[in-house]
């Protein structure tokens, strides 16, 4: 068991570290203040660590994203004592590194290539582009649902 964790740990640490960096960077872009930025960094690390763990245990990217959003939202609600009313914003910032912008790019570039194809053999490309688009929809849905469900159930949707 411990050997398995030792094998997972470097990749887990890598994903958490870069998730934290991405969340902090976007936190600055969204004009979060100093102390809240620190919480965004922690939320980003938590989200990416949770997603990576689910994937390591055989879960899909979509399932991992849903569990990660759910975990981050619950953690932010539990930390409301320190975070105050910004807890939902911190949870959202932590999940930003999971937004599938690259998949959307893949899908659109794939569709453009299909549109430009004159050989009539673009079926594989069309399937790949459509798959990428479906992944965008499901991952964005997973983030939204994962963030919203705990907030609705725990009635923490404060002003």
């Amino acid at each position: 068991m411990s050997e398995m964790w030792l094998a997972i740990l470097p990749h887990l640490a890598h994903q958490a570290a870069f998730g934290a960096l991405a969340a902090a960077g976007f936190g600055v872009l969204f004009n979060f203040g100093g102390r809240t930025l620190l919480w965004c960094t922690l939320a980003g690390a938590l989200a990416l660590a949770a997603r990576t763990l689910v994937q390591q245990f055989g879960g899909s990217l979509e399932a991992g994203t849903f569990v990660a959003s759910l975990t981050t939202s619950c953690a932010a609600i539990l930390a409301q004592r320190w975070l105050g009313p910004t807890s939902s914003a911190v949870a959202l910032a932590g999940c930003i590194p999971m937004v599938p912008g690259a998949f959307f790019g893949q899908a659109m570039l794939g569709y453009i290539a299909v549109a430009a194809d004159t050989s009539g053999t673009a079926t594989a490309q069309l399937v790949a582009a459509s798959q990428a688009f479906v992944r965008v929809v499901t991952i964005v849905g997973a983030i939204g649902a994962g963030l919203a469900i705990p907030a609705y159930l725990m009635k923490s949707r404060q002003f």
Partner: peptide, 24 residues
């Protein structure tokens, strides 16, 4: 209401995208 200086936003955004790259 204070805003981060544009140079800091540019550096932070660059770092975030580079981190995204590593995650991808």
């Amino acid at each position: 209401t204070p805003r981060h200086p544009p140079w800091l936003v540019a550096v932070a955004t660059g770092l975030a995208c580079a981190a995204f790259g590593r995650l991808l």
